[in-house]
């Protein structure tokens, strides 16, 4: 077999500038990961605002705001939970701080979702809000998810880690798994015949939680 080593070498040489550029882009992405994540997380809200500005509010804007903020709150919790697997499976070390960024973005959408419900849907009608909270299991589950997210958002600072101690802080922040699961149940519970969107979210959550379970089992086996 004749191997043309010359051509091989020359290809490698041609690739060098391209690899260089890729490396530079990679470095820039790593440096600006935080800003990029924040920018991407605000897109759904911006898109909704643009849609209202360009096409008018539509037939039922309160419903649409409720759905968009709720869906993105849930998706961003899932995105935040996907950071650790991304780090371990893909070796993306730079994404680690995004867990907190995306978690806070999720909380922001959840807060908008809750505000839409109380201020717009119920127009601050205390009796109607109380009835929802005491008689509608789906609302209760959503509220429970929000309360957990709020607790995590409040304790998301470095100061909190110091005050609580790393062990207690980590234990507290495991509540994000419960918040995500409650949010998925909340979504499931309000759908009618078409359950597909909730099934997709539940499936993603199952993979993300399953990965953590597998790591724990493996770690336990190794240490025993």
């Amino acid at each position: 077999m004749i191997v043309d080593t010359r051509s091989c070498r020359s290809t490698e040489a041609d690739d060098l500038p391209r690899r260089d550029r890729a490396k530079r882009i990679g470095a820039a992405l790593r440096r600006h990961a935080q800003a990029l994540a924040i920018g991407l997380a605000t897109l759904p809200a911006v898109a909704l605002a643009l849609r209202f500005a360009l096409h008018g509010p539509g037939a039922n804007p309160i419903e649409e705001i409720t759905h968009v903020t709720g869906e993105w709150g849930l998706r961003l919790v899932l995105a935040s939970l996907a950071i650790t697997p991304a780090r371990r499976w893909l070796g993306w070390r730079a994404v680690a701080p995004l867990r907190r960024t995306l978690g806070l973005a999720a909380f922001a959408y959840a807060a908008l979702h809750l505000a839409t419900w109380a201020l717009l849907d119920h127009a601050l009608d205390g009796a109607a809000i109380a009835e929802d909270l005491t008689e509608r299991p789906w609302v209760m589950v959503g509220m429970a998810s929000f309360v957990l997210l709020a607790a995590l958002a409040v304790t998301s600072t470095r100061g909190s880690i110091r005050r609580l101690g790393a062990a207690r802080w980590t234990a507290l922040h495991r509540a994000v798994y419960a918040a995500a699961a409650l949010a998925v149940v909340h979504h499931f519970w309000l759908l009618k015949a078409d359950l597909r969107p909730a099934i997709v979210h539940a499936g993603i959550l199952a993979v993300l939680l399953g990965a953590r379970l597998a790591w724990r089992l493996r770690a336990a086996r190794r240490s025993s």
Binding site: A128, D132, E135, P137, W189
Partner: peptide
């Protein structure tokens, strides 16, 4: 079973 029928939102 999941929500109230006591009130409604008239579109618009």
């Amino acid at each position: 079973p999941r929500w109230s029928q006591a009130r409604e939102r008239r579109l618009g």
